[in-house]
Design a protein around this nucleic acid. Structure first.
Lengths: 108, 108
DNA sequence: GCTATTGTTCTATTGTAATCGAACTAACGA
DNA sequence: TCGTTAGTTCGATTACAATAGAACAATAGC
C-alpha cells in the first residue's frame, strides 16, 4: 500500500499541532479518538465526503497527532498518545477536557 | 480611545485559541508574554511592520489570550493567565514548556 | 496648536487551506 | 476476474488569512 508519512517525535512542532487542532472537523476527530483508541476513517467522517476526510487525516498524521496503520482494506487510526504526552505533556488533557466544554459556552 | 474587544471567558473557544497559537509570530508573542507579564506592542514586534503586529495582537485579543489596556500612548498587553488557567487548565503550561523545546527538535 | 510616538484601520496583494467531485489504488470476497 | 468497499490523490473552486504600505487616531511634550 501507499507509504504513510508519520513524523518522528522530535520532528513534531507545537505550531503544527495547534494548527491541526484549530479546525473543528479535525478537533472532533481527535476528540473522538481520545475515547475510542482506534477507529477507521469512515467511522469518524461525520457524513463528510471521503476526499475531505482523507485530507484532514493527512493533516493530523503529518502534524504527528495520529498514527494510521493498515488493516486490510481499512485504515485504523489512533492517537499517538504516549508520544504526545512525552513531547507535550498536558496537551491531550486539554483537548480531552474541552470535549464537555464544547466550542462556545462553558459547561461549568 | 478605541474600544478593544475582549471576549468573556465563556466565549473563548479552544479552536480559536489553537488557531491563534498556530502562527509562529503569535506564538512567539505569547511565549514572551509568559515571561514578561506585561509589555507594549512595540516591545514584542520583533522588527515587524506595525500593521502586521497590530493584526496579530487583534487575533490574540479576540481569541481571548491577551488583554490589552491603555497606558498613555502605548498599549500594555498581558496574558489572561488566571482566566485561561480556569477555562483550559494546563494549556499555558504546554505553551510555556514549548519555549525551550523550540519548533523543531526536542530539547530533552 | 504643533509634532513625535504608538498603535489601529483601510486597502490591496499574495499565499494557503478547505471543500468536493472524479479518477485511481489496494484489499477482500464471490 | 469481477465487483465491492475503503481510502488516497488529482484538479478546480472558493474562502480566508498573512503581509505591509498609507492614512488615521490618541496621547504626551514642547
Amino acid at each position: 500500500m501507499r507509504i504513510m508519512k508519520h513524523p518522528a517525535l522530535y520532528e513534531i512542532s507545537i505550531e503544527q499541532v495547534f494548527y491541526a487542532l484549530s479546525d473543528p472537523v479535525r478537533l472532533e476527530i481527535v476528540q473522538k479518538l481520545c475515547m475510542t483508541d482506534e477507529a477507521t476513517c469512515s467511522a469518524l467522517d461525520g457524513g463528510r465526503p471521503k476526499s475531505s476526510v482523507s485530507h484532514h487525516f493527512r493533516v493530523l498524521r503529518e502534524a504527528g497527532l495520529v498514527w494510521t496503520r493498515n488493516e486490510g482494506a481499512s485504515h485504523m487510526n489512533a492517537l499517538r498518545r504516549a508520544e504526545l504526552n512525552e513531547r507535550f505533556p498536558g496537551l491531550l488533557d486539554v483537548v480531552e477536557a474541552a470535549i464537555q466544554g464544547g466550542t462556545g459556552r462553558n459547561a461549568a
